[in-house]
Design a protein around this nucleic acid. Sequence first.
DNA 1: CTAAAATAGTCGGTCGTCCAACTAAATGCC
DNA 2: GGCATTTAGTTGGACGACCGACTATTTTAG
Lengths: 166, 166
Amino acid sequence: MPTEPKLPFDPIERAGEIWARRIGESTAMKLATSIMRVQQLILAELDAALRPHGITFARYEVLVLISFSSEGTLPLSKIGERLMVHPTSVTNAIDRLESQGLVRRLPDEADRRRTFAELTDDGKDVLAASTKALMAIDFAIDGLTAKQQDQTYDLLRSLRSSAGDF
Amino acid sequence: MPTEPKLPFDPIERAGEIWARRIGESTAMKLATSIMRVQQLILAELDAALRPHGITFARYEVLVLISFSSEGTLPLSKIGERLMVHPTSVTNAIDRLESQGLVRRLPDEADRRRTFAELTDDGKDVLAASTKALMAIDFAIDGLTAKQQDQTYDLLRSLRSSAGDF
DNA sequence: CTAAAATAGTCGGTCGTCCAACTAAATGCC
DNA sequence: GGCATTTAGTTGGACGACCGACTATTTTAG
């Protein structure tokens, strides 16, 4: 009859960290799982802050991007490219935003394959309120000093660039 | 007629980074989006390495955890706790693993609310092969030196602990 | 000892991500 | 010019994560 097993180490870590300690000192694996865990935490915080405004962080990013476009509109393909997500993710986000009345699709007469996305007035309002909400939260990341934040950012940036992310 | 807009900055960044530059120097936001991006990259790498073995990294983590339990079985609740995921995510993962024949559910006679998960022989084989595959890949994280990896890990760890993650 | 509260797991639904496959339109090449 | 190739976007399906709600069991408190 199996009883609840007790691992010979600390509190709780993602499997990768346990794995690392057992299999080899794959700090890479340890780091990988830590990054995934941190991402999970941060995304949960951001989504929670945005929930009262009826959007998620993924959709917030889309609104931001559109609002910063010089013409006020952006082809869906550009959105996917800038956010580095699959085209279908963009379709999905825009579908939701459109059904919420925050965004409008406009056909491109010049290139009839393309579709522009444009913020509605409601979209602009929600974006403004959401931005305010995000700036107000006390972020997990705020647990790091500004210097540590920069340092982390730089490290991740070189990781990304070595992964060919730019 | 809207034309494809050109942002007055670099290649491509997630919206949060653009947002940061425009709205304020919220390095927190910049860092947040960078973490999310890196997570996306890493998870894609890991899943790609595991695809030939028919599992994902999420399910791999479950296999690892079960295999490291002292009794060879683990109550589902412990799995969720250690991986820090929602109970329904565990149910989901175990459902898939079970239907793949990699894991077995066992009732706990002592506490009939509980269910144990146990690896099948196939599960052990897949785990071994998967671990090998993961150790063989040339990881994005390997773009950092060992020292940088440790440094990043420490930074993220203090971030997590300030978020009350332990 | 019994009623209330906590715990374990599941079900149904939402959301975001990806892939494969497909349509429509524009571009390239001979 | 006309056909092959590329590009833009969508659809359908898989997957993992979450939440709310619910059932079945302990456990706890009075």
